[in-house]
Amino acid sequence: MHLKEETRERHTLAVIVDNEPGILARIAGMFTARGYNIESLTVTDISEDDLVSRITIVTSASPHVMEQIIAQLDRLIPVHKVIDLTVLGEHVERELALVKVVGRGEHRIEALRLADVYRARVVDATIESFVFEVTGGSEKIDKFVELMREVGLVEVARTGIVAISRGKDAA
């Protein structure tokens, strides 16, 4: 017998939660307990009084499971609301990466040239290294990191995706 795989769609969800201890474990644990997949998860407090956080989750699932994921998130007691940005329509997704590149001579110059093309900023430099800060969609960052591999990449740190809907209305 072989196990079957279902076709999956990628969705970006914004989950507004009470900023209470254990909330991240509650959400991440619910995903593992029910066999859902997390591609990226970011969380930060977004309110003046530190009481509410916004969690951005990128997940992929069949349409049927996606409906379940949203319902399961929604029924957790500290969850205010769940916004499926992918269904809602156009939205902006951004990620920030810090990329450390080591090299001398031609590699170093090429790294700077490529960084310029990708609008990456130098945030740290030594005689033989740079740390670039680059923001953009995940694909752009993937591409930048891939190019840096050719010119001396030694370390990458990425934030994961944050996302917001386009237009004047709050979601």
Partner: peptide, 11 residues
């Protein structure tokens, strides 16, 4: 009463 029960196993 629980929305997550709906469409979980059967549409």
């Amino acid at each position: 009463i629980d929305r997550s029960s709906v469409n979980k196993n059967v549409r």
